[in-house]
Structures are given as C-alpha cells and as structure tokens.
Design a protein around this nucleic acid. Structure first.
Lengths: 235, 235
DNA sequence: CATTATAATTATACCGGTATAATTTATCAA
DNA sequence: TTGATAAATTATACCGGTATAATTATAATG
C-alpha cells in the first residue's frame, strides 16, 4: 500500500478509535510529518484523501478538523459508489437469472461493444440486514468478466472481479431517477405497483476507461436511506 | 483565481469547445507544462481537479483521457451539490413563506445553535425550465445570514450569501430518502398524495466548518433526473 | 474594556527534482 | 507471423523547499 494511503488509514482509524467528535482539531501538519516520519507533501496528500472521503475538513490558517459522521441506518454513499461503503451492513443476494446472451442495442452502446459480443446477464435481489434492498439487472462484458456462476453472484461480484480476476475498478457514471414500481418490480420487492422506487442506471469502468458493467437497479424505498457528503472543489 | 484552477478551466473549455468525445487523449504532462508555462505539480493539480469533476480520467503509463459527458436533461450532481451545476437550466423560485423565528430542537441541533437564537425560515417552490422542481424549506442561522428578503429568496440565496455577504460556502452533509408525498407537498408540487418523492435533508457548512443552512427538500419525481459520477479514491 | 494594529501560527500554492510503476512501442527470436 | 523480451513513454509517489493567504493570538492604543 502507498505511504499516503497508509497514513490516511491510520489517521482514520485514530479518529474512529478515539471517537473524536465533529470539530476536533487534529495535530498540525508539522506534527503529523514527524509523527509519520514523512514529508509535508505526503501528509497533505493523505489529508486530501480524507477530506474527499468526508472525514475531515481543513481551514487555511487554522487547522484540520474532524467532520460530522453518518446517521445510523443510512447507507454511506461516497463518490466511490455504494458497494464498498457497506461496512456495518449485512449484504446478501439471491440470484434470479444468470446466463450468457447477446446485448441489446442500448446495452451494447453503454458497454461499447458490438451486438455480436457476449455479455453475462445477472438478475438478482440484494438484501440488507435481511430486508430487501433492491432488484438488480446487470450486464457484464464477457471479454473482461470472463466467468461468472451462481455462487459468485450470490456474493459480491465486484470483490470477485477485483480479487479473482485482478481487474482494477476505476469509476462510474450514474443516472438517477425517481419512479413508480411496475408489476414485476413490485412483486420482487414485496411492494405494491405504483409505490416509489429509486431507479439507477450505472456504467462501471475499469481504471483504464473500459466499461465492464451496465446495471439497472430499483431500490426498495423503505430501505433507501443514503448519506452523502459533498466536499467543494478546492482541495 | 489560482493558477491550477485557471489551467483546469482552460482545459475544460478546450474539451467543451472542441467537443472531444470520450477516450480522446489529451497532450502529455510535459506538453501541458510548457503549454501553460507552469510546473509539473501545478498541471497535476489542475488535472486532479478535472478528474474529480468527472471530466477526465488518467491512466498511469498511458495518458489523460476525456470522460463521458452527461445525458441531456439530467441535472448534474457533483460532489459540490446541486446548486452550482445547473448551467443550461432556467431556475426560478416562488417564495411561499419568509420569516424570522426560533428554531425547533432538531433545527437548532443541526445548525449547532441555541433554541433562543434566531433563524430565517424560507419556504419556496423552485422551478426548472418552467416546471416545478421541488418544494424547499430552509433554516438559515441569522448570525451568519444576517439579512434576507423576498426578492433575494426569489433568486439564488447561495449566490447572495457568497457574493453580497462574502461568506465562503464549504461542504455539506446530505440525508437522502425515497418517500410518498403527503397532502401539503402534493398540492404544492401539483402531484397526488402517495406519489413518489425524493426527500433530502441537507446541512450546509461554511468553509470554516460552521453550519449556516439546514434544509428539507422534496423533489418532483417527474423532474428528478440526476447525473452522478464517481471517481475512485486514488487521485 | 473595546478596538485596532501587529505578530505568530497554519494550511496552501507553487516550484522542480528523483524514483517508480504501469502501459505502450520497438526489438528480437522462433 | 507469433510470442517473448527489452526499451521508451507516461503518469504517479515522494521529497523538500520558498512564498503566500487566512486565521488566531498578542500587543498596542484610545
């Protein structure tokens, strides 16, 4: 792990361990430099990382301060996406469908592949702490996600892609809508037709810019509480 | 304006002016350095800014590339919040209520003030391109937002706070829910009771960490299409 | 005591350098 | 032509420095 990431982790763990409240001032840069035996720029980079994670804020001429924490029961939604920030929640999945197929025009467009190329199609229900969280339909570029099965799809597919396939997940584009549930969705989510849903279309890219996953997710509105922190641009 | 922000702007304008498609490779660092007559670190900082804005992505050993753009009609939702990213949309507002009052316990808690301190309360409907976008209730700490009137609240209150009051807006915490409209909301949004809504509670902070605005917003689901880009943490 | 001016503190901008890791291109061998 | 190997390209990590701007603490002033 990189030095600045390591330092960021240690500072984060320190904040969490000591349960520091909002507004607590952290040691000044100079102190952090000697504490972690590193240069100023590396400390700054670590702090910038923590600032973008929403853990601290920095005030020029004043100091570095601890930022407010999440409300309980809210899913933290960083600019990393949902999936990794689910610590503290019990996430499981039930696979409804899993097959290899040819993509529709829309899917092919979003994955930047030809309509003759193969994709893995996965339809599943995801649970959070035993409650139905969402209904997900995902299309994976088979050239990148070379293999999938039921067992893998029952767990975290992204963990599998990162760890087993060794691919590096980069960024994503999300298109968010508020809509009413249709019949199929309502039955899977255990809700009524016309009930609210959060509907999100996402294209996930590897860190080299290749799209590997196009997904459509309908969230159960009863479980949909998200915590989101903005940071401003001047980092 | 800072040099690295200036450079980021110029690169952004260049991308938009030339309408460069996704995947287009930008000049290499060395070229950008001489092009903008600045040091490596400053160029890197400018590019890091653009990366967090979702405009480019960088691949080590390969280059800097243009990222996908927004779909038409979607409100771009950066980690800056909604308000500033509404270029291309016509945003207006109608003020329903505006007064000075004592905060409830919840409002006082979120603004970190005493229940005896004054707040400005503003209730208004915001329109996007003539359509009803949302119903907003906001509480402003009167020690910070010292004056408000109907005319100001008809426009952008944040612009007023930044420009006229000279305060620097820093970051925000958002709590997002999907719910059903109640009677009051439905009547103001021109929708039916039970229709979906995106309900967002936000605490806005100045750049020195002081909370100055606590707001509750109910979005019209028919106008609620948001574009959101995640970036990964390794910037 | 309140206000103002000054100094100290502190984070940030900006510079330019070396070393490193990932990718791409060129080279060579089979 | 293919596949492996080496070299070149390119972004990133990390260093340490000076200058600057914002804030906070201190001193001076009325």
């Amino acid at each position: 792990m990189l030095k600045y990431q390591q330092i960021a982790n240690e500072i984060q763990h320190d904040i969490e361990k000591k349960d520091l409240p909002q507004g607590t001032k952290l040691p000044v840069l100079e102190t952090l430099m000697s504490q972690y035996k590193t240069s100023k720029s590396t400390v700054i980079k670590a702090l910038s990382l923590l600032e973008r994670k929403g853990l601290v804020y920095q005030v020029r001429g004043s100091g570095i301060f601890v930022r407010r924490r999440n409300r309980k029961g809210y899913i933290s939604f960083s600019n990393q996406g949902f999936s990794d920030e689910l610590s503290g929640f019990d996430i499981t999945a039930k696979v409804l469908e899993l097959d290899i197929r040819k993509p529709s025009a829309e899917v092919a467009f979003n994955l930047k592949i030809d309509s003759e190329d193969d994709v893995y199609y996965v339809k599943r229900i995801r649970y959070i702490n035993g409650q139905i969280l969402c209904l997900e339909e995902s299309y994976y570029n088979k050239d990148i996600v070379t293999y999938l099965n039921n067992e893998i799809a029952t767990g975290s597919i992204f963990d599998y892609i990162s760890n087993a396939l060794g691919a590096k997940i980069g960024f994503s584009d999300m298109y968010v809508h508020i809509q009413k549930l249709n019949e199929d969705e309502a039955s899977h989510l255990g809700l009524l037709v016309g009930d609210p849903k959060l509907f999100v279309e996402t294209i996930f890219y590897l860190n080299n810019g290749l799209p590997f996953d196009f997904s459509r997710i309908s969230y159960n509105y009863e479980q949909s509480q998200f915590f989101f922190q903005s940071t401003g641009y001047s980092l």
